[in-house]
Amino acid sequence: MTFKTLDQANLQDQRALVRVDFNVPMADGRVTDDTRLKAALPTIEKLRKGGAKVILLAHFDRPKGKRVPEMSLKPVVEPLAKLLGAPVGFADDCIGEAAKAAVEAMAPGDVLLLENVRYHAGEEANDPELAKALAANGDLYVNDAFSAAHRAHASTEALARVLPAYAGEQMRRELEALDAALGNPKRPVLGIVGGSKVSTKLDLLNNLVGKLDKLAIGGGMANTFLAAQGIDVGASLCEHDLADTARQIIATAKEKGCELLLPIDVVTAEKVEPGVSSTVRELDAIGAQDRILDAGPKTLARLIAAMDASATLVWNGPLGVFEVPPFDKATVESAHHAAKLAKSGALVAVAGGGDTVAALNVAGVTGDFTFVSTAGGAFLEWMEGKVLPGVAALTR
């Protein structure tokens, strides 16, 4: 991937239009989780240090092209200023006189947040006219919102074609990590794909079997693969109508030289409740009322051995119902082992997706992985091999 970084830009006195992801959780008009604000700090600080005027573009929620007061970005100003340790200005619109006047009043090093770009219908329509109106207040464009890069919107795609475009620090880290995981990885490469349904990850599985050396499938989706091979999965979650699809993926993996690691033993219970009585079952001993809720100890041991034999790991989705102990064991122990290998430098471990991040947080190892992407949809589409418009616009 060839994209320009801020190290290649002349920043002094430049008006830098920076697309960030400030679509943060809020309650009663207050930010309840500042993770995404913190993610933008390295880019903002680099621009300030370089003498740029930092003008932040972002969306919040889905106002559908209308001005919805409850979807204003104004509540972000105070927590962002606190994190920066510097004042943050606010303009009541992202284009027009309000934005123009606020930008003209800026000095190098100042930070300004513009109002929700989705107040304009042209944002989600990727309208080139809105992009030109946004560009009127900038000399260069910086995209630091990988999590919004799978959408071809005016502030993520069209604007990058109007002004000189650069990747922000968070975007750069994300793209470099993803390239290290699948684009140009150290081999052997192991993938872990879990979650409840095969139907939501067909594109992902079909892409990965052509890129990985080994692919471990866990969670509810593994039941569909087991059933497709004639194994009785009892009362487990299973998409029986996708048996042919599962068999086709198994055949494609064999053809491409990707070893599929399906469960060889499982943990079952009749109910999904914390502390419920559970049993380890061999695949030929699953009862009619049994529900498969986690990978068994033999499956876990084989996965850990596969990690030890790999140079790169890419992970999306839990191996069991990790939210309900004791069915978190395979996910948590796998996460601990991957984190230990990553910390020692023996494994490049990249993970992403909402449930995956939550599972790694439960295991307490998020900080020990090589990289953990919080960009749910964009991370998944990248793993599916799809072109992300916001990234493509930076690599022209």
Rank of each mutant, 00 (worst) to 15 (best):
F60I: 06
L215Q: 06
A246G: 09
K329Y: 00
H336I: 02
E381N: 09
G191Y: 11
A16Q: 07
L208A: 12
A105T: 12
M383V: 03
V189S: 03
K214H: 15
L205M: 14
G194T: 13
A98G: 04
V24H: 03
A105S: 15
E270A: 06
A253N: 11
V324Q: 01
I192G: 02
V372S: 03
L261W: 07
I55R: 02
E381S: 13
D244L: 11
N206G: 14
V362L: 15
T43V: 05
S147E: 08
Q170H: 13
K340Q: 14
G89T: 05
D355G: 12
A253E: 10
N143Y: 07
P297N: 06
E78A: 15
G138R: 08
R281S: 00
K132P: 04
S277H: 13
A16V: 09
D290S: 05
L260Y: 10
D93S: 15
V233I: 13
A152W: 12
A58Q: 08
V276L: 02
K46G: 01
G257C: 13
P75R: 06
A288G: 07
A295L: 14
I95N: 06
G354A: 13
A363S: 11
H59R: 08
A107F: 02
A305P: 03
K201G: 11
A154L: 08
V117P: 09
R302L: 14
D213Q: 05
A375D: 01
A9Q: 09
A180W: 02
E282H: 00
A16C: 07
V54N: 01
A351F: 01
A235Q: 14
G210K: 12
T245M: 04
N23S: 08
A251D: 14
L6C: 05
G96I: 08
A306R: 07
D61G: 05
P75C: 07
G85W: 08
E381H: 13
Q229M: 10
L215A: 05
A358M: 11
G138N: 10
F327G: 00
G122P: 12
Q248G: 13
F379R: 01
D232F: 07
A121K: 15
D7H: 08
V357K: 10
F3Q: 06
S196N: 09
K211V: 05
Q8G: 02
V68E: 15
D34H: 06
D61K: 14
G168L: 09
D13H: 13
L202A: 01
A91N: 14
V117Y: 08
P87A: 14
R281L: 00
G168P: 05
V142R: 03
L112K: 11
A154G: 11
L215I: 10
S196L: 12
R187I: 06
M221R: 02
F327L: 00
K340V: 03
A148C: 13
P325W: 02
A99G: 09
M307A: 04
V391F: 02
S344E: 15
N361G: 15
R173Y: 01
I44F: 10
D144I: 09
A167Q: 12
L182K: 11
K343M: 09
T5A: 02
G50F: 04
V280T: 14
